[in-house]
Structures are given as structure tokens and as C-alpha cells.
Write a protein that binds this DNA or RNA. Structure first.
Lengths: 229, 229
DNA sequence: CACAAAACGGACCGCACGGTCCGTTTAGTG
DNA sequence: CACTAAACGGACCGTGCGGTCCGTTTTGTG
């Protein structure tokens, strides 16, 4: 795996690999605890390395963020795909959401990162689109089973979830049940309404998001047709 | 009103008053658009004054924030109190929430401010407690009318609302209906459940919040007994 | 064991931001 | 209209952050 074509890039030294791991762990921890604007100094310190080492592994703070965020999002996508095969369409969806809320410290950082670097970083964009895609499938499946109201989209769910992740972060330390409670509220919101009742407007799509974040032009989008339910 | 005891503090000059207004307006606008970390330079520029003028009116950036936040919160409390007298307990509650969501640009800044300066600034704390109080009353009234499920508290609602305000901010520019849609979802979440169904845990109270934000000690709390319904 | 390549880490740089200071302008009064 | 107290605003300062550089230490190989 270390063989690039032409030049041979040797396997990194043992200490290098170890330090890289430590940095990723420390950063994930701190970003989860206090958001994306913890300083690189503190990250390096918690990892037990110097600042220089941090910047050799990740040329930019944003690169470090991206590494963590993409990793966490991939994890989420994989869990989602597993749940797609599990029985109980509605339960699968809520298990997915519960997992996200559990990792709420991490999740908050994800939301932050998406907001800040979404358009800039193609890796994050792709990973994000993947999560949306899987969430959309889980949602559709639950809707077809009649366990979730038919008029919500993936972004609706994501927004509710974001509310949990951001708010619960402040309370989590004192009441670990808080996100479960909020999750129950989401469940209630998504349940098919007893009395007919509709939502105004429509659920945003990935394209909507890109358009909203685009400053002026930005005609081509790498992967089109990945809309939300 | 300009007469302080002892020394006579004269009414401020006309231009001073005008500039103060302009600063407040500009800051409210910018904080709403891009959050609390817009620079003072930009605020002064949009207000059409120099940075020095800003700092004479508000010795600290936090003072400026507090002035805006307290103002907006008082407005909300007043609206809430009016609605408490209006017919239609459930509708009154949702009208209140809709108003908050409408001012979503402003509201987002409020949530941010509470998170950052809650413990530090007594004025913000008081105004915040007032909002919680009014929201709690609106909620109880709606619950007694059977229009809202009995097991939610003011903070539950606030958290859902926060989700709207923060997320919608990104989309608002492209789809102004987005917060209405989310509001409908909140409505669904708060509706009395068709099939019996309970929420895990309990709704946090103001005291919980203070405890959560307190670093270590912090025994006395200025106004006790202002719990949430 | 020796030695070169690679990784280490802290000193250093530039920038941006909150906050201060003071020479200049302006509002208001007799 | 003159004169003073107040308000004005931009030049200036200190701090903290992301990012760079380079002398020192470590790894692992012949």
C-alpha cells in the first residue's frame, strides 16, 4: 500500500504513525467537548506532541478537522447501511438517530464542520452526501412501512437531530438522559399524525444546500441526482 | 430620567443618541446574519461610525451583545405575556414560537449569547429567566387545555426551537418557508400522542442549567425558585 | 555500532481582533 | 457668533491564534 507509482514512498516510521493516531484521538475528543475552535496548541498538548508534529501530519487545521469528520461520517454511513438490512424499518431509523445522538459530542463537531467547510472541502462534501443518502433510504423504508409520516425528508430529520446535538452538549454533563428524551420528541414528531395534518413547504435537498452555500456562481456539482426523499 | 442622584448627568447630545441607535441596529443585523463573532470593525463600519464611538457607547463587545440580547428577550417576554391573555391556549403557544422562529436571525444570536455569557452577565440571566418563565406559563396553559402533551417542559420546547433557529439560518436565504415547516414538526412533537407514549427522563429546569454551567462552586443564585413548569 | 534519513518540537512570524488614546470636529448655549 | 464641553474616529497597542523553520533527537538498517 505504501508503493506509489514511480517513486517508492516508504512506510512511515513507527513513532510517526503512533503520533498521528494520538493527534486524531486528541482532536476528536477536544472538538467534541468544546467545538471546532479549540486551539491547535491544546490539541498537540493533549496528544503529547509538539505543534510542529501536528502541522507535519496535517498541513492545516482544516485538514485535521476533515480527517476526523470524514472518518466519523463514514462510520455513520456504514452503520446506516447495516441497519438498512435489519428488520424493523421504523426501529432501524431510530436506532440510527440514537447512535448519532449518543455520539453527540462528536456529532456536534460534524454539524459545525459541515456549516463551515462544506463547499470548500470535497471530501467532507462526499462523506456528507453519503450520510444524507443512507439516512434518506432508512427514512423511505420506514415511511413505506407506515411507521413514519410520509411528508418528511432527510433534511427535516437532520435539522431536528442537529437541535439535539447542539443543545444536549451543554446539558449532557449533568443529565446523560437528556438526548434520549429529545430523541423521544423527535420520534413523536415523525410519527404518522393521528389527525390529518401536513407540513408547510417541502424538505430541502442536497442541491438546495449547495445552492444556499454557493456565494455567486458554481454551476457544476460533482455528483448530481443524489437528492433527498 | 437623566438626573442621577448627586451629580446631574445631562441628556446625551443628539448625535450621540443617533449613533448609539445606529450601532445597536447594525450589530443586531450582523449578529443575526453571521453570529456573535463578527468583528467590531465591521459593526462600526455598517453603523457608519468609527470604532472609538462604538467603544464609548459600549465599553466592551460583550456589553453591546448584552444590550441587544436583553432588548430582544424583553420583547419576547412582552409578546408572551400578551399571548397569555389571548384566547386559544394552544394557538397562543405556537404563535409565540412562530414569532421567535420568524426572528430567527436574531434568535440564533440569543441562543449563542446565552451559551457564552449566561453565567457572567446578570442582566442576560434575568432576561433569560423571564423568557423561560413566560414560555413555561404558555406551555402549562396549553397543557391544561389538553392541546399539548403533559410531559414536556419549557426547556424541551426551547431545545427544539433552538434547532430550528440555528439550522434554518443557513437555509432561510433560499427558502423562507423552512422555519415554518420545522415549526409544524415541533407542533407534531408537542401534540398529545394518539397512542400512550412517554418521554424518558425529565425536562431540565433553570437550576439545572445554572448547575451545568457553573465551573466548580457558585453557591448563591440571585433569583431562586424560578423553575420551569 | 555507525550513520543517514526521517521525525520531532519549540522558537519564531504575521495577522486579526478587542480595546485604548488623543488630536480634531461638532452640538448646543449665552 | 463665539466658545466650551462633549462626541468623534482613526492611529495605536497587546494578545492569541494558525502556520513556518530549523537545530536536535530518534529510528532502523547495513
Amino acid at each position: 500500500m505504501w508503493a506509489e507509482m514511480g517513486e517508492v514512498s516508504r512506510r512511515p516510521r513507527a513513532d510517526a504513525e503512533r503520533n498521528r493516531r494520538r493527534l486524531l484521538d486528541a482532536a476528536a475528543e477536544l472538538f467534541g467537548e468544546r467545538g471546532l475552535d479549540v486551539g491547535v496548541a491544546e490539541i498537540a498538548q493533549r496528544a503529547g506532541v509538539g505543534r510542529g508534529t501536528l502541522f507535519r501530519n496535517f498541513p492545516t487545521k482544516e485538514d485535521l478537522i476533515a480527517a476526523i469528520v470524514v472518518d466519523a461520517m463514514s462510520e455513520a454511513s456504514m452503520l446506516g447501511r447495516e441497519l438498512l438490512a435489519a428488520p424493523g424499518a421504523g426501529q432501524a431509523l431510530f436506532t440510527f438517530l440514537e447512535a448519532a445522538a449518543d455520539r453527540q459530542q462528536r456529532s456536534r463537531a460534524l454539524f459545525e464542520a459541515v456549516e463551515e467547510t462544506f463547499l470548500v472541502n470535497p471530501e467532507i462534501r462526499a462523506a456528507h452526501a453519503d450520510v444524507i443518502d443512507v439516512l434518506g433510504r432508512l427514512l423511505v423504508r420506514a415511511q413505506e412501512a407506515g411507521e413514519v409520516r410520509a411528508d418528511v425528508g432527510a433534511f427535516d430529520v437532520l435539522m431536528l437531530l442537529k437541535g439535539i446535538c447542539e443543545t444536549a452538549a451543554a446539558f449532557q454533563q449533568m443529565d446523560p438522559q437528556i438526548s434520549e428524551r429529545q430523541l423521544d420528541l423527535i420520534r413523536a414528531a415523525l410519527s404518522p399524525p393521528a389527525t390529518p395534518q401536513t407540513l408547510r413547504g417541502r424538505s430541502p435537498t442536497l442541491e438546495d444546500l449547495e445552492r444556499a452555500f454557493a456565494p455567486a456562481d458554481q454551476s457544476q456539482s460533482a455528483d448530481s441526482g443524489r437528492a433527498t426523499g
